[in-house]
Amino acid sequence: MSASQQHKIIAALHTLPFIDIDAEVAKRVEFLKHSLITADAKSLVLGLSGGVDSTTAGKLAQMACDQLNQQHHTTQYQFIAVRLPYGVQADEGDAQLALEFIQPSLRLEINIKAMVKGLDLAAESLIKVVNPSAHKLDFSRGNNKARARMTAQYYVASLLNGLVIGTDHGAEAITGFFTKHGDGACDIAPLFGLNKRQVRSLAAYLGAPDCLVHKTPTADLEEDNPQQADEESLGITYDQIDDYLEGKAVSSDVKQKLEQRYRQTEHKRQGPVTLYCNWDI
């Protein structure tokens, strides 16, 4: 890796060391409004987990729909917040708190447990042949949960002429810490270009409850280790990731881990790999 690799990654992910929060909110709301108008869509759809990322993206989406309705003297634009629990969600209270904060145009709940269990049943013969370890099976099922959630969101968007919002931001993008074709799949990503602490700053600025702004991030996909903190899974803290994305000096160990993860997960940030993909990173 060259000495400029950090700068190349920062440029690719469009992160900045400092942001004007008021300007960022306005810019991202305008982006959502423009996306709706350009696509001739009437809805924005987002799976609301109760974490700071979906809370922030959801609030921006509701603001965009409210502004379009005011500008066009209509009620046709709506933000649809979809709860997507697998059975009973451990932090359901946080999700409900996020809903109360956002006040979405429409609230829906689709429990994905039957979808995931159905795939387990359909693949039962393969599982018996492969005989994966319990951890491998749990990890794969966790990815299936993320993909089931995205399938449900696209179903809702299809029924209601909507666009699906993703919550990807710089700290997730650099680490590839998302499920390919799961939470990494979406039509528009209004948080792109922000790091994790900047997402928290936007959430606080928008008035999100403090417990959600500072909530410990967790993917909560694996049943063997529910509510496992992202930082534990990554082996790197979000502060370290954000420092790197802001162009600050970080330890050689952190730099190596991040650049290795970025290289290994490039396929997640691109379309299908072809002969013409440039992986010179």
Score class of each variant (00 low, 15 high):
2 S>V: 04
12 A>W: 13
13 L>F: 10
17 P>R: 12
18 F>H: 06
19 I>E: 05
21 I>M: 10
22 D>A: 12
24 E>P: 00
24 E>M: 01
24 E>R: 04
27 K>Y: 06
30 E>N: 06
31 F>R: 07
32 L>E: 03
35 S>G: 10
41 A>Q: 13
55 T>E: 06
61 A>W: 09
62 Q>G: 03
62 Q>M: 14
65 C>Q: 05
74 T>F: 03
79 F>N: 05
81 A>H: 09
85 P>Y: 10
90 A>V: 12
90 A>D: 08
91 D>I: 13
92 E>R: 11
94 D>L: 10
99 L>W: 00
107 R>D: 08
107 R>G: 00
115 M>Q: 13
118 G>H: 11
119 L>I: 14
122 A>D: 01
122 A>E: 10
123 A>C: 11
124 E>K: 04
125 S>G: 08
126 L>C: 13
128 K>M: 01
131 N>L: 13
138 D>W: 05
139 F>W: 04
141 R>G: 02
144 N>P: 00
145 K>T: 00
145 K>D: 02
148 A>I: 02
150 M>G: 05
155 Y>G: 13
160 L>N: 12
165 I>L: 14
166 G>K: 07
167 T>C: 00
168 D>C: 15
171 A>N: 06
173 A>F: 00
177 F>V: 01
182 G>Q: 01
185 A>N: 13
185 A>C: 14
189 A>K: 12
199 V>D: 03
202 L>S: 04
204 A>K: 10
216 T>N: 10
221 L>E: 03
223 E>L: 07
224 D>F: 10
224 D>P: 00
227 Q>L: 05
232 E>D: 07
234 L>C: 03
235 G>Q: 08
247 G>P: 02
251 S>I: 01
254 V>H: 09
263 R>I: 15
265 T>Q: 08
271 G>E: 06
276 Y>C: 04
279 W>G: 14
